[in-house]
């Protein structure tokens, strides 16, 4: 699913964009626990999280996740935004809760990272 479509479906605002809007993202992972992201994510996945802290950006960077969606309209603080810029992580904010964000994307065909 392309970044543009994800933004539109989730009524999201892109607060930092580091990749083109036609970039295709293969998988989604939804969690607030960072080790889980490190354990299950594949590169080219999308992280949907309510953990709107620096840790989410740091974890995304380490796990080669290029796009993070913060849910429930939570604005990142200054340090979190700066980190996203510094690490080249694209950051979106959606007004939807994580449950609805997952549902909306799932309904349009997005799937979770496959097991190895």
């Amino acid at each position: 699913m392309r970044l543009r479509q994800i933004r539109e479906l989730l009524d999201a605002v892109i607060v930092h964009q580091a990749i083109p809007e036609d970039t295709d993202l293969s998988w989604a992972i939804a969690t607030d626990l960072m080790s889980e992201v490190l354990y299950y994510s594949k590169d080219n996945s999308l992280l949907i999280t309510g953990l709107t802290r620096q840790q989410a950006i740091r974890t995304a960077h380490i796990a080669d996740i290029r796009v993070v969606v913060f849910t429930k309209g939570k604005e990142p603080d200054f340090q979190t935004l700066e980190l996203a810029k510094d690490k080249g992580v694209t950051l979106l904010i959606t007004p939807h809760c994580t449950f609805s964000a997952c549902g909306i994307l799932y309904e349009r065909g997005m799937r979770c990272c496959p097991d190895e």
């Binding site: 607030d32 626990l33 960072m34 080790s35 889980e36 490190l38 354990y39 953990l51 802290r53 840790q55 989410a56 974890t59």
Partner: peptide, 14 residues
């Protein structure tokens, strides 16, 4: 620590 997104018992397995 859990509220900061860590401490879910996956660190060592990871």
């Amino acid at each position: 620590v859990r509220e900061m997104g860590w401490g879910a018992g996956m660190g060592l397995p990871n």
